[in-house]
Design a protein around this nucleic acid. Structure first.
Lengths: 342, 342
DNA sequence: GGTAGAAATGTTAGCGCTAACATAGTTTGT
DNA sequence: ACAAACTATGTTAGCGCTAACATTTCTACC
């Protein structure tokens, strides 16, 4: 294998003790100027690379942070990752990336491995659906610093950095209401998933605060995929015409795309017959023939804040659990009937 | 800090030696059945987590692989990552992700850090532009297993897994030729970047093999961004009309998008007045009003093959340097004039 | 029952590094 | 000139673990 140079070897070459070499290389006080120079030169010429394993073993600090992500190719996460990386790079931490594939078993496995590697902290976007929180409770007891991001588990007293979906969906529903629409449908996600629940909540609140009626038959449990949106919209349009909604709020952009196809296939026009809005600002949203009004999720901000919080926990600066909610931003295009904006 | 349980502590509790506990936990031979059971139970109840730092220090094996990526949010890489992860997960390796931000200094820094962490191998997508290969030469001499992926440095005798851009661009040019177009323009990337060069090469070869003339004024050095495509296309269309190309091959999809805007703004139709094709199968390509014919880059395959190759080098199974080229696939839509396909 | 041989357990040393204390060597003040 | 006070270097031990060898305990068989 690669025969790595050690401090001891350098010391031997120079007739010094290991300790002096260590001090010279780690820029500690109390090393003679000449000695330091000699050591550094020798280290370079011998191709010395410090051994972080040994260092970590002694110092209990590895300068690595573990990341648990449910689905890497889910456009949201590369952006999160970028935010995380920007922070960790500055603070000299390395990232160990693990992927749970939306599987709680793998998530636990990944966290165990990260702990074995003695990471200084962990960031988790959980795939957990069950109500059994014992795993995270014991993780918390182990005193491993960790935070949740995007998908959080509540009631544990663990910091959580997420997008405030409820406020976002309330805002976009309000935007529809401001256009004068009263019969508004919602293609919802599964309500046992927090995202789905939050967005539905926001929708309901907006209606309530404006004194509008929530028509139960206009709330269709769809899902997060394009096909789900199609199916849900078909269901809506299979009702007698006078029951049709005037506007539709889809749980996310892909669902909206599916719904849009159905609307157009029916020969209806957007937004004149039916207005529609989505959620997540998918890269494709602005490329539709009628660009989709949607809610932008600040993934980069989530990553950045989560990394900052985790590091401040690691450094013992700000240990108290916090619920940081990143606010979404409305992206107003024309599918909502906003002819004024482009 | 988190007071982690050690083998020694378990041993003490049970009145055994550390070694027996180690053997029991690591499923080695020669441990009494009762003892093993006792140890495992105790380990569980005390919340033992093995210390991979110590293990790695002894065994010279860390089960981690370093990844150097020039730009995380560059849609290509999450896909690569997915391929890599799938392989490394099966083989029980962890991934340490680093980001060079297209900066060679940071790339070198990242690799040094990875070496310090004693990763078992490294996968690099290089941002290097210069011809000074000394850094990678010395990395090679250090006997750290590594492979290049996507962006390779040649002439080092290091394995490289990349997309064969030349063949891809030759294929798509051929496709245009098959449609009967003879005056074909190329919006090229910078030719000092290998991607740009390769794609231009493929374009030239296709023309040559079909006995077509390469019109130098129809090759515009553009760039990889949408704005570059715009600029290049404007330049083309500012020529007298009889010089206009009948078809355009843009170096990538974003450049094609820019060009398309210009074509449409001029009131020309795609593909009837000017056919256009891109490269990279951007997620937006199929959503254009005239969906873009392009070349699909199998990023997932690149990641998978690269990880497989690296692990086989680490395991000493297949150490010989290889140049693995993943073939692209044509995605035929309608911007090339293929009215038959959807 | 006694002994060879296997099975179970223990001991020692060291992976590469650093904290903590110990020892030389050098300066400074009076 | 000599102790006090540095500065530069060395020594020892230990982080948590395992390989390699050493010892004890158990089994088997004559």
């Amino acid at each position: 294998m690669s025969s790595n140079v050690t401090l001891k070897e350098i010391a031997k070459e120079l007739g010094l003790s290991t300790m002096t070499v260590s001090r010279a290389i780690n820029k500690k006080e109390n090393v003679g100027e000449k000695t330091r120079k000699r050591v550094l030169e020798k280290a370079k010429s011998m191709g010395y690379t410090p051994n972080f394993l040994a260092k970590g073993l002694v110092s209990k600090k590895t300068f690595s942070i573990g990341l648990v992500i449910p689905e890497i190719s889910h456009s949201f996460f590369p952006e999160v990752l970028k935010g995380v990386e920007e922070v960790t790079y500055k603070k000299n931490y390395q990232l160990i990336l693990t992927h749970s594939a939306e599987n709680f078993e793998r998530e636990m496995e990944a966290i165990e491995t990260l702990r074995s590697k003695r990471v200084d902290g962990i960031m988790v976007s959980s795939s957990q659906r069950t109500t059994d929180h014992s795993f995270y409770e014991s993780l918390k007891e182990s005193e491993t610093p960790f935070v949740f991001f995007d998908r959080c588990i509540e009631g544990l007293g663990v910091s959580c950095i997420s997008v405030n979906d409820k406020i976002g969906s309330k805002k976009i529903t309000q935007h529809l209401i401001d256009h004068g629409y009263e019969k508004i449908a919602h293609l919802s996600g599964p309500i046992d998933v927090s995202i789905g629940k939050e967005r539905f909540q926001g929708f309901k609140e907006a209606l309530r605060e404006n004194g509008l009626t929530l028509f139960p038959e206009l709330v269709i449990a769809a899902g997060f995929q394009e096909a789900d949106g199609r199916r849900a919209m078909q269901e809506l349009l299979s009702m007698p015409e006078q029951k049709w909604p005037r506007a539709v709020f889809a749980v996310n952009d892909p669902a909206a795309f599916g719904a849009i196809e159905v609307i157009l296939e029916k020969g209806l026009s957007i937004p004149d017959d039916i207005a529609i809005v989505g959620f997540s600002d998918d890269i494709r949203a602005e490329l539709l023939s009628t660009p989709l009004t949607t809610v932008q999720q600040p993934a980069y901000q989530v990553g950045k804040k989560a990394a900052e919080k985790l590091i401040s926990i690691i450094d013992g600066e700000d240990v108290r659990p916090e619920n940081i909610e990143i606010l979404t931003e409305l992206v107003i295009r024309s599918s909502c009937g906003n002819h004024s904006s482009k």
